[in-house]
Every structure is written in C-alpha cells, then in structure tokens.
C-alpha cells in the first residue's frame, strides 16, 4: 500500500471515530457510560492526531484531500466489486485493476475521491 494512501485511510478512520462521538448521540452515550471516556478530551485528542497525519501528506495529495473534504465530506472511499462507494459509479476496469494493489494514490474519475480497493 502506498504510504500516502495509508495515511489517508488513517485520517478517514479517525474522522469516522470523531463523527461517532460528536454526531451519534447513542454512540457517545455508550462510550461515556460503558467505557467512561471523557468525550471532550477524546475529541481533542483525535483532532490532534488528524492534524498530525494531515501534516504528513504531500502538497499535491493534501491539496486534493482538502478540496474533496470541503466539497464532498469523505475524501477516501472504498472500491468494492468495481464500484466507487463515494459516488456509486463503476470504476473503469483498467483503473480498478490498476489500483487493486493500492500501491498508487488514485482517485475516482467521477467524484474525485481517493479510492481504496478492498482486498
């Protein structure tokens, strides 16, 4: 896997974790009541880690990542069975085959999101 793609995946995973704590009331409740975490502190910690990882992106990757995040929310999406799970449009066969190894940082030609092919 390309190191930049790995960073992008981690950022997206952290954003999902942050979303659960900030936007999903039931999730926050479980984390606070069952696991007794301090939500505010947890969110700060997640934000710090996201910023740290964002700083590791190359300028060109970061530029697309910021633009897509701003315009479309999720910047990284899986490709499952040849379908981009950001816009649900088929990825051209050649590209889908090419990215199968995830060894390049690629994006969906239709929605522009970074794509990660599920093995």
């Amino acid at each position: 896997m390309h190191p930049q793609l790995e960073i992008l995946l981690q950022i997206q995973d952290l954003k999902a974790q942050r979303r659960d704590l900030t936007e999903v009331e039931s999730e926050r409740k479980v984390e606070e009541e069952e696991f007794r975490i301090d939500t505010e502190q947890a969110i700060r910690s997640i934000d710090e880690k996201i910023a740290e990882l964002e700083a590791e992106l190359t300028p060109s990757v970061r530029s697309r990542y910021e633009r897509i995040s701003r315009d479309r929310g999720r910047a990284v999406v899986p490709v499952i069975n040849g379908i981009c799970y950001g816009c649900f449009v088929s990825i051209p066969t050649a590209l889908a085959s090419d990215v199968r190894r995830n060894d390049e940082v690629r994006h969906c030609d239709h929605c522009g999101r970074f794509i990660y092919v599920m093995s």
Partner: peptide, 17 residues
C-alpha cells in the same frame, strides 16, 4: 497492511480510555 492499520486504530481508541 490492514492488520497494521487496525492495530493503530485500536491502540488509538485505547489511548482515549
């Protein structure tokens, strides 16, 4: 590679509490 990413995420979650 997926194992390594999962480990990092789980470790980060443990660091929150």
């Amino acid at each position: 590679k997926s194992e390594a990413i999962l480990f990092k995420m789980l470790r980060r979650r443990e660091n929150l509490g």
